[in-house]
Design a protein around this nucleic acid. Structure first.
Lengths: 248, 248
DNA sequence: GTCAACAAAAATCTCGATATTTTTTTAAAG
DNA sequence: CTTTAAAAAAATATCGAGATTTTTGTTGAC
């Protein structure tokens, strides 16, 4: 089992999936670290540095970085290497709008096509999500990653019956992008928010097969994270900066 | 200037862009070759073979392949290499539906936001497209690549005023995916089709800022290529195959 | 002091060879 | 003749070093 050195030189595991290739391991680990904010948006990603961090060779590291390029989590420019994808309120606003458009469409199709197996998967994932939401109030720092996982799983279950592969693909990309901002939003939590109540409302509407209501609630739900982050950023709005880049 | 060996061992140019890296060169060339159908959907892409074809090393070739992975033009599985992304009527049907959803939304936003500069770019690209459409009737085989380029440019110009980066990104991916099918559809041309008239109608509606009409026409325009390909495939529908993979 | 040219350092990109895994072939057994 | 097992071949994945480009630092002229 491979290991990688942590920030100060500790060693953390390479996410013990046996059959995987080194590229896939480095890719998965770096992706998570970017999403969790271990690397600042826009930060330089030196191959030599990362190569050493993950104990792999340069070319292998480049291949892992190139994968993240395809998910828009890193950028690469000509002859001057890779960077973490920049983050901005404007980007998140855009992301949110497109997500509303695509995810509500997928939800509508899922409600139209879904069978009992689909429903039961929603029930199960909603239950699992609810459990971790309780824990989130007590121990936010520790439960947040598990919350993210179950939140993703719940949202995936909702639209699982949508037959469009391309909608699923795009939603996956957008959801992942949102995760980065969502974590920032939770870190700077300013507005009190009953996420569980939102999920419950969506859950009820979907099980009741009320497509219009479910889509409306989902759109509001997606929008709300943007509002929270916007409020968290606006008060300290320095008039000098116009583009409001986000630096964690 | 690098060269690559053609099918029978000839040498063709590496798309003479000077400042590019070898990875970018191989990536761009292979992408075009896949889109043009030089490699069959689902075909194995042996690194050794490609490496020799483009005169680059294995790791560099892998990096180029990984880029195409992010654009869903190739697939990669665990420890068994890369393949050209499969193509199927079902995939094209899905692609078409999603494209209609996203591209009409972008067009609506473009019409709402567009200024005079936007309009003039549309006029220019429509003119350029019209010119090559004339040539297309006489000399299809030779004009097709130029038609594809100008067609892409026209469609891009139409939605250029849409402010959403993510819509642009997805539309770019979907348009590229469609290109592969579009070329198949043109090769097996069965139904007579006045593409120029379709473009003209869209052009007029957009310039008149009639969003509803423009979106309707665009959706029909996108749908029509699907219909053409469907008709071209259905007559020879062998009852044995259920999934109707497309093998050029 | 600022700018430019040049040199040194650092980083990126590329290569060719090796280790590992999968696939094919061959041989043996039931 | 089919199935199983072992060996050989082919293909993938990985490495570490070298070539190329960008960035940083220094010197000298104006």
């Amino acid at each position: 089992m491979e290991t990688v050195s942590d920030r100060a030189g500790e060693e953390i595991e390479f996410h013990g999936k046996g059959g995987k290739t080194l590229v896939e391991g480095a890719y998965a680990t770096l992706r998570r670290e970017i999403l969790e904010g271990a690397f600042e948006p826009g930060a330089k990603l030196r191959t030599e540095e990362l190569r050493a961090r993950y104990n792999i060779s340069g070319s292998t590291m480049r291949e892992a970085l190139t994968r993240l390029l395809g998910e828009a989590l890193v950028t690469s420019e000509g002859q001057r290497g890779f960077r973490v994808a920049p983050a901005s309120l404007e980007d998140f606003r855009d992301l949110t709008e497109v997500r509303k458009l695509i995810e509500t469409e997928a939800l509508r199709q899922a409600i139209a096509h879904g069978d009992e197996a689909w429903e039961s998967q929603i029930v199960a994932s909603f239950y699992r999500l609810s459990k971790v939401e309780e824990r989130l109030a007590e121990d936010p720092a520790h439960a947040i990653s598990e919350f993210e996982e179950r939140n993703r799983e719940f949202h995936r279950a909702l639209i699982a019956a949508c037959p469009s592969r391309w909608l699923h693909h795009f939603i996956g990309l957008l959801f992942q992008q949102s995760e980065r901002y969502r974590r920032m939003s939770m870190a700077k939590r300013t507005i009190p928010r009953d996420v569980h109540a939102e999920h419950k409302a969506i859950f009820d509407a979907v099980i009741a097969r009320d497509a219009d209501l479910a889509c409306k609630l989902t759109a509001d739900h997606i929008e709300r994270t943007l509002t929270v982050l916007r409020v968290a950023l606006e008060p300290q709005a320095e008039p000098r900066r116009s583009k409001t880049k986000i630096n964690s």
